[in-house]
């Protein structure tokens, strides 16, 4: 930390004592904070996007999957002493398995009957998971082992943990991969075929049930990944995911849930806007300003910022 102070004068054109310089640091650090958090919202929102485009359903326990990723990562790495990469991989696999379970027990039984009760069932599933973790993992928040989050580096005068710069990179890479997968590969095209016409897809030999199940597994694994990425910057506890899940759903809708790129971009925009509002207007205005912005954006663009209007066949 002392070193950081000494380094400061060498950086960029900023003069630490000038008001303009400090305002710049304020904005830079807000943008950097917002990029990391926003990419995390984007990652979770990509999970909403995936299940929506393939099955027209979403998993409202995504927030709890964020928590599950972090809690399992902590359990494997700290309590069982596995090396961190192995612990993270194991946690992601478990999250994927949880996704399969959610789809099989909370979505499929309702969706197959044309009922919308999966909506409430997945909300309930998330609450059940939160409480199971509360009783098994414990009540006290715990600290995740640091991953590139011990020593801050300086970017344009603002301190930032390297992990915070990695989260947006991971987020954008995954959004790009998903967009590629869906539009360019045979697997992806078969996914899209499922959503366009389930019966036709089935006739063409596509295993619809399995495709949807795999999508759920992938989407909860993404939420788990978001949890693992945020955990070193945060603390691990049973209700850590609730608010993330909520904001991510707002982001998914804002981005126009049908576009992977749109969802990721909306996440980053949301995160940066949130941090800027806090930095420039003060923290008491953040939630009011952000959700008003979301409502206004949706009123002006009902299909989200980057979504397309669904084609209605008559």
């Amino acid at each position: 930390m002392g070193a950081l102070h000494r380094q400061r004068p060498y950086f960029f054109f900023l003069n630490q004592t000038s008001k303009i310089g400090e305002r710049n640091i304020l904005i830079t650090s807000a943008v950097l904070s917002g990029l990391a958090l926003g990419s995390m919202y984007g990652l979770i929102a990509l999970g909403f996007h995936m299940t929506y485009v393939v099955s027209n359903t979403v998993n409202f326990s995504q927030g709890s999957s964020v928590m599950l990723g972090a809690v399992l990562g902590y359990t494997f790495a700290v309590r069982l002493g596995l090396p961190l990469p192995l612990a993270c991989a194991a946690a992601l696999l478990c999250c994927a398995a949880f996704g399969l379970l959610v789809e099989r027990t909370l979505v499929r039984p309702f969706a197959s009957r044309g009922s919308n009760a999966w909506l409430m069932a997945t909300v309930a599933g998330g609450i059940v998971l939160d409480n199971v973790v509360l009783f098994t993992f414990g009540k006290e928040p715990r600290s995740f082992p640091p991953m590139l989050s011990e020593r801050p580096i300086e970017v344009f005068g603002a301190g930032v943990f390297p992990l915070q710069l990695i989260i947006p990179v991971v987020g954008i890479a995954i959004a790009a991969a998903l967009a590629m997968l869906l539009r360019r590969t045979r697997h992806g095209k078969s996914l899209l075929a499922v959503v366009q016409n389930t019966d036709a897809a089935r006739l063409m030999g596509i295993n619809v049930t399995r495709t949807i199940a795999v999508t759920y597994a992938l989407s909860t694994a993404l939420a788990g990944l978001a949890g693992l990425l945020i955990a070193p910057l945060f603390s691990v506890h049973s209700d850590m995911g609730t608010l993330f899940g909520l904001k991510a759903f707002a982001v998914a809708i804002l981005g126009g849930i049908t576009s992977a790129w749109g969802v990721m971009l909306a996440g980053i925009l949301y995160g940066v806007a949130e941090a800027l509002v806090t930095a420039l207007l003060g923290s008491s205005h953040t939630q009011i300003a952000m959700f008003t912005l979301v409502i206004a954006a949706l009123a002006l663009m009902p299909n989200g910022l980057f979504g397309r209007a669904p084609v209605k066949k008559v």
Partner: peptide, 20 residues
Amino acid sequence: IEKFETNDVDVVPQLTRLKE
């Protein structure tokens, strides 16, 4: 005077305002 939420990950914006 800055406020923050129980589940806020990042308090840098608020703290930067106080520093400024």
